Amino acid sequence: KFNKERVIAIGEIMRLPNLNSLQVVAFINSLRDDPSQSANLLAEAKKLNDAQAP
């Protein structure tokens, strides 16, 4: 279950337009470290993406 959620979360994070490459890598590394947190990490990535919108 967590592996599928992690793959989906990674794909979504990679498509967030307002994150820089270091932020994307940090979120992906966090997902690798704890796949059970996929939903929480994706939500945090989306919040950061929205906050950094031009």
Rank of each mutant, 00 (worst) to 15 (best):
K1P: 12
K1E: 15
F2A: 15
F2P: 15
F2M: 15
F2D: 15
F2Q: 15
F2T: 15
F2S: 15
N3V: 05
N3Y: 08
N3P: 15
N3W: 15
N3K: 03
N3G: 11
K4Y: 06
K4F: 02
K4T: 13
K4V: 04
K4E: 15
K4P: 15
K4D: 15
K4Q: 14
E5D: 13
E5N: 06
E5I: 12
E5K: 03
E5Q: 06
E5S: 05
E5C: 14
R6Q: 15
R6P: 13
R6Y: 15
R6L: 15
R6W: 15
R6V: 15
R6K: 12
R6E: 15
R6M: 15
V7L: 13
V7P: 01
V7C: 15
V7I: 12
V7H: 11
V7D: 15
V7K: 14
V7W: 14
I8C: 13
I8N: 04
I8R: 11
I8P: 02
I8E: 08
A9S: 04
A9T: 11
A9L: 08
A9G: 02
I10H: 03
I10W: 03
I10P: 01
I10Q: 07
I10D: 02
I10K: 03
I10R: 03
I10M: 12
G11P: 01
G11S: 09
G11E: 11
G11I: 12
G11H: 08
G11F: 10
G11T: 07
G11L: 09
E12C: 14
E12V: 13
E12P: 01
E12D: 06
I13P: 00
I13M: 04
M14G: 05
M14W: 03
M14H: 05
M14Y: 05
M14I: 13
R15H: 09
R15V: 07
R15P: 01
R15Q: 09
R15W: 04
L16W: 01
L16N: 01
L16K: 00
L16A: 00
L16I: 01
L16D: 00
L16P: 00
P17V: 06
P17W: 04
P17T: 06
P17F: 05
P17D: 05
P17N: 06
P17H: 08
P17A: 08
P17C: 07
P17M: 06
P17Y: 04
P17K: 10
N18V: 00
N18A: 03
N18H: 11
N18D: 02
N18T: 01
N18P: 00
L19G: 02
L19I: 03
L19Q: 00
L19Y: 00
L19R: 00
L19C: 04
N20S: 13
N20Y: 06
N20C: 13
N20V: 06
N20M: 11
N20I: 06
N20A: 07
S21L: 13
S21H: 13
S21T: 14
S21P: 11
S21D: 05
L22P: 06
L22Y: 12
L22C: 14
Q23G: 01
Q23V: 03
Q23R: 00
Q23I: 04
Q23Y: 02
V24W: 03
V24M: 06
V24F: 04
V24Y: 03
V24L: 10
V24R: 07
V24D: 00
V25F: 14
V25A: 10
V25H: 13
V25M: 12
V25Q: 10
V25C: 14
V25T: 10
A26I: 12
A26P: 00
A26S: 13
A26Y: 08
A26R: 08
A26N: 09
A26E: 09
F27H: 01
F27E: 01
F27S: 01
F27D: 01
F27I: 06
F27M: 05
F27P: 01
F27R: 00
F27W: 02
F27T: 01
F27Q: 00
I28D: 02
I28W: 04
I28L: 13
I28E: 02
I28Q: 03
I28S: 03
I28N: 02
I28Y: 02
N29K: 10
N29F: 12
N29W: 04
N29Q: 11
S30V: 09
S30L: 14
S30E: 10
L31P: 00
L31A: 03
L31G: 00
L31Y: 03
L31K: 00
L31Q: 01
L31W: 05
L31N: 00
L31H: 01
R32G: 14
R32H: 11
R32E: 14
R32I: 14
R32V: 15
R32P: 05
D33W: 09
D33E: 10
D33F: 12
D33M: 11
D33Q: 05
D33P: 01
D33H: 08
D34G: 03
D34T: 05
D34H: 14
D34W: 07
D34V: 04
D34F: 09
P35E: 05
P35Y: 06
P35T: 07
P35K: 04
P35V: 05
P35C: 14
P35G: 11
S36L: 08
S36V: 08
S36H: 06
S36C: 13
S36W: 08
S36Q: 10
S36D: 05
Q37I: 09
Q37F: 09
Q37K: 11
Q37P: 03
Q37H: 08
Q37A: 12
Q37G: 10
Q37S: 08
S38M: 15
S38A: 12
S38L: 14
S38C: 13
S38Y: 15
A39C: 14
A39R: 11
A39V: 12
A39D: 05
N40W: 10
N40P: 06
N40T: 10
N40F: 12
N40C: 13
N40E: 09
L41C: 09
L41W: 06
L41N: 02
L41P: 00
L41E: 02
L41T: 12
L41D: 01
L41V: 13
L41Y: 11
L42M: 05
L42I: 06
L42C: 04
L42H: 02
L42P: 00
L42G: 01
L42N: 01
L42Q: 02
A43N: 09
A43R: 05
A43M: 13
A43T: 13
A43C: 13
A43L: 11
E44Q: 12
E44L: 13
E44A: 11
E44K: 06
E44I: 11
A45D: 00
A45F: 03
A45I: 02
A45L: 02
A45H: 00
A45G: 01
K46G: 02
K46D: 01
K46Q: 07
K46R: 13
K47H: 08
K47Q: 10
K47R: 11
K47N: 08
K47W: 10
K47C: 14
K47A: 10
K47F: 07
L48T: 04
L48V: 08
L48K: 03
L48R: 03
L48Q: 04
L48E: 03
L48M: 07
L48F: 04
N49S: 07
N49L: 01
N49I: 01
N49W: 01
D50S: 07
D50F: 07
D50E: 11
D50W: 07
D50R: 08
D50M: 09
A51Q: 07
A51W: 08
A51G: 05
A51E: 09
A51P: 01
A51D: 11
A51T: 07
A51M: 12
A51H: 07
Q52K: 03
Q52V: 05
Q52W: 04
Q52T: 05
Q52R: 05
Q52H: 04
A53E: 07
A53D: 10
A53K: 11
A53F: 08
A53S: 08
A53M: 09
P54G: 12
P54A: 11
P54I: 11
P54L: 08
P54E: 09
